[in-house]
Simulated scan of single mutants.
Amino acid sequence: MSFKALFVAAAACAMFATTSCSEKTQENAEATAESAASDAATTTENAADATANAAGEVKADMAPEAGDTAVVVNKEADKLVEEAPKQ
């Protein structure tokens, strides 16, 4: 379940609880909202960790290795870029 869906569900429950439910139901709704917020925070933190790990893996994969001979020039191309013939 996405963060937005959890947040919307928790907000809807909290709003409903404050307008037409008993005190016990309201307490349950508040606990649900807090739990949803906690779950969302954990999910966000896990996603940030996964992104950092993926970035580290890409950096490691892109590290030069023995025998690499490619030279990259950082300039804009205004024409078709052609591959060099394979040897």
Rank of each mutant, 00 (worst) to 15 (best):
S2F: 04
F3S: 13
F3E: 14
K4N: 06
K4F: 02
K4I: 07
A5G: 04
A5K: 07
A5I: 05
L6F: 15
L6T: 08
F7M: 14
F7N: 15
F7S: 15
V8T: 12
A9N: 11
A9R: 07
A9S: 11
A9E: 13
A9P: 05
A10T: 05
A10R: 03
A10D: 09
A10V: 02
A12E: 06
A12P: 03
A12D: 09
A12F: 05
C13K: 15
C13N: 13
C13D: 09
C13L: 14
C13T: 06
C13R: 15
A14K: 13
A14N: 10
T18K: 13
T18I: 05
T18N: 09
T18Y: 10
T19A: 02
T19Y: 03
T19N: 07
S20P: 00
S20R: 04
S20K: 02
S22F: 01
S22L: 04
S22C: 04
E23P: 00
K24A: 01
T25E: 12
Q26L: 05
E27M: 00
E27F: 00
E27Y: 00
A29S: 07
E30D: 15
E30T: 11
E30N: 13
E30R: 01
A31W: 06
A31D: 04
T32E: 12
A33F: 01
A33H: 05
A33T: 07
E34L: 04
S35P: 01
S35L: 14
A36M: 03
S38L: 06
S38F: 00
S38N: 10
D39G: 04
A40M: 12
A40N: 07
A40E: 08
A41Y: 11
A41T: 09
A41P: 00
T42G: 03
T42S: 06
T42Q: 12
T42A: 10
T42M: 11
T42K: 09
T42I: 11
T43R: 14
T43L: 13
T43I: 08
T44K: 05
T44V: 08
T44I: 07
E45C: 03
E45I: 03
E45H: 12
E45M: 06
N46E: 14
A47T: 06
A47R: 03
A48S: 14
A48Y: 01
D49I: 13
A50V: 09
A50L: 06
A50D: 14
A50W: 10
A50F: 12
T51S: 09
T51F: 02
T51D: 11
T51Q: 12
T51P: 04
A52C: 02
A52P: 01
N53G: 02
N53Q: 14
A54C: 05
A55E: 15
A55Q: 12
G56L: 12
G56F: 03
G56W: 03
E57L: 11
E57H: 07
E57R: 14
V58H: 05
V58E: 14
K59F: 04
K59M: 03
K59T: 05
